[in-house]
């Protein structure tokens, strides 16, 4: 298993926005999760959903919809783990 940060982003207050990342080998088991970089203790900052697209026989594209649960901008890392 290995992990990494695929992208960094900023999402505005109470916004929902979608990112996509393409060209991933479809035979790999990949999970996506986010980590806010902006400290804001006391309540959750981000929620996210993942959807997937089979672009062709060998590759896929992940679509990550990020929801900012706060009234302020949040910088974050889009992280992945390749599980196998």
């Amino acid at each position: 298993m290995w992990t990494g940060v695929q992208w960094t982003g900023t999402i505005g207050p109470n916004q929902t926005q979608r990112w996509f990342t393409w060209g991933w080998p479809a035979n790999e088991h990949v999970v996506w999760y986010l980590m806010p970089r902006t400290p804001r203790p006391g309540a959750p900052e981000l929620d996210w959903d993942v959807a997937v697209e089979r672009a062709n026989a060998a590759h896929c594209t992940y679509w990550i919809t990020v929801k900012n649960l706060t009234g302020g901008s949040v910088d974050f890392e889009g992280r992945f783990a390749v599980l196998g």
């Binding site: 996509f20 959807a51 997937v52 697209e53 672009a55 062709n56």
Partner: peptide, 10 residues
């Protein structure tokens, strides 16, 4: 099932 152009499954 390949179908490029947008997300297929959640």
């Amino acid at each position: 099932t390949p179908c490029p152009g947008g997300p297929q499954l959640a």
